[in-house]
């Protein structure tokens, strides 16, 4: 058996993917715990038990994500930029531009035709345009984060929101709520602010088709649609697996390559 695993410990969530012969046999996603090691263990355990495996069955494991240096059981760690690139590639072999919006930052990565990272940029020093931003706003609107995306299509008059600062945006949102704006209009404004932020990054790495999205925010159809409008490009849907686990998938693929002595 050549079973490999990828473990992606992010700031908001931890993801694990177990692969065998290029197929995902199990995956798990949990909210991050107080430290990366705990998150990694828990998410890995869940993925293993789903597949009826134990850690001993894993021939090679690669860690990635914010907490990757603090995971004891991995054989090697690789940056999430490379892993998201590789994971997106597995999800869509034509992927050349990847917009990854995670809990803590937002990245745009451009790949060459072989899937190597050519250029990447990430937003710096600010929570705006990240999963955290969306989470804070969802909490203010008192709706589950999963429902944020659908607000855009319900809205007829989206508000314009500060796209530069989470703190100020909160103040604005409270003001909009108090002045009786519809939740969907505010939500649509939030999604569109996120999209604008991500579009700047994507444009600055230079866009090549296919454009794909990974990370939790890829599941927010409001952000995706706004981004398509802003970029003037179709964003390829990736149905093979949850785009939020793309980093872990990439890590598992790197693990497979390491095992096969490639890369």
């Amino acid at each position: 058996m050549s079973i490999v695993a990828g473990c992606d410990v992010g700031s908001l969530t931890a993801k694990a993917v177990i692969m065998e012969k290029g197929r995902i046999i199990s995956s798990a996603l949990l909210r991050s715990k107080t430290n990366p090691q705990l998150s990694a263990e828990a998410v890995m355990q869940e993925a293993l038990s789903k597949a009826g495996l134990s850690m001993d069955d894993i021939r090679y494991c690669i860690g990635t994500g914010y907490g990757r240096k603090n995971i004891s059981f991995v054989d090697k760690d690789i940056s999430e930029i490379a892993c998201h690139g590789r994971g997106a590639r597995w999800l869509n072999p034509g992927a050349r531009t990847i917009i990854d919006i995670g809990g803590q930052d937002c990245k745009a990565v451009r790949l060459d035709k072989d899937g190597n990272v050519v250029k990447f940029v990430a937003n710096d020093k600010c929570a705006s345009g990240t999963g955290r931003f969306l989470e804070v706003m969802a909490r203010l609107l008192d709706i589950p984060i999963e429902e944020m995306g659908s607000l855009s299509s319900k809205s007829t008059a989206p508000i314009t929101l500060s796209s530069t600062c989470t703190v100020w945006a909160q103040a604005d949102i409270v003001k909009y709520i108090n002045s009786g704006h519809k939740i969907e209009d505010i939500g649509a404004g939030v999604n569109s602010a996120m999209a604008k932020r991500a579009a700047i990054l994507a444009n600055s790495v230079g866009i090549e088709q296919d454009v794909c999205m990974t990370g939790g925010v890829a599941k927010n159809e409001g952000v995706v649609q706004d981004l398509e409008k802003l970029l003037g490009k179709n964003i390829k849907k990736m149905r093979k697996a949850d785009p939020q686990i793309a980093g872990a998938i990439g890590a598992a693929i790197f693990a497979m390559e390491s095992l096969n002595g490639r890369s």
Binding site: R110, D112, V117, V205
Partner: peptide, 17 residues
């Protein structure tokens, strides 16, 4: 990530910018 990127020889640069 940057050092990793340098590690791999890219096949093309692409992109408009």
């Amino acid at each position: 990530a940057f050092l990793e990127r340098m590690e791999v020889k890219q096949t093309d640069s692409g992109g408009k910018s």
